[in-house]
Amino acid sequence: MKITPTQIQYLYQFTRQRYVEWYDLQTELVDHLANAIEQKRQENPNITFENALELEFKKFGVFGFMTVVEQRQKALSKKYNSILLRHLKAFFTIPKIIITGLIFLLLYFVFYVCTYTQEIALFICLIIITLVLYKQTKFNKYIKNKEKETHKKWLFEQQIFQYANGVAVINFTSPMVQFTNFLTRKEFIYHHYQILFFALLFTCQILLFYIIYFEIPAKAQSYLEQTYPEYNFETI
C-alpha cells in the first residue's frame, strides 16, 4: 500500500516534533520511514500506518533522531571549515597573495615603527566590529524572512550566514588590543620575530573575517545548491 501525500505531510510533522529542524534531514528521514512503512504493510496488510511508524521509529534507538541530527551538524561544520580553508589558501597563492602581502606590510609597519600603534589598532578593530554587526543584522533578517516565506530551514545556510554569531570578532579584536598595549609600554622588551608573528597572525584574522562575512556569503547560492540538490525544488 502506497503512502498518501497526507501521510507524507504527517511524517514531516513527526520528524519536526522529534527535534529535526532541518528540511534536508527531514526529507531524508521521511523517505526512509515511508519506504519502511510501505514494506511493513506489504508484509503484514493488517498493520496500521501509525503502528508501522512506531515500530520503524524504534529502530533508531533510544535517542531517536538525535544522533543523526548531531552527526549531520558535525559533518556540515567540517564541510564549512574545509571551504573556509580553501578560501584562505587562495590568499596565499598568486594573485591574491599581493593583497595578503600588503595587509601584512601595513600591520607590520603599524606595529613596528608607528608611534600611534594602539590608536590605529583600536581604529581597525572598531571598523571591523561595526562591519560585523551590520552584516550580522542583515544576515539574520535575511534568514528569518526566508524561513517565514518557505517554512524550511537549511543547516548549511545557517552555518554560512550565522557563523559563530560574532564570536569571531571578539576572538580577533581582544588579542589585537592586548598586544598593541604591550608594544606601547616602554619597559616591555620584545623581539623582532614576535612582531613578525603577530603581524602574520592578524593578517590571517583579517582575511578570515573577510572570507566569513563577505566571500562565502556571496557564493552561498552555489555552495547550497551543491550541498542540497533539492534546494531549488518546489515544495511538495
Binding site: T27, R72, K74
Partner: peptide, 27 residues
C-alpha cells in the same frame, strides 16, 4: 542510527555526492 551519520560524514569528506529525485509523492 549508524547508517545516516556514516553517509553524511563520507559526503562531507567528498567521498560521496548526492542527487535528489522526486519519487511518487516524495523526494
Amino acid at each position: 542510527g549508524a547508517l545516516y551519520p556514516a553517509l553524511h560524514k563520507l559526503e562531507a569528506e567528498g567521498v560521496l555526492e548526492v542527487e535528489v529525485v522526486q519519487v511518487d509523492n516524495r523526494l
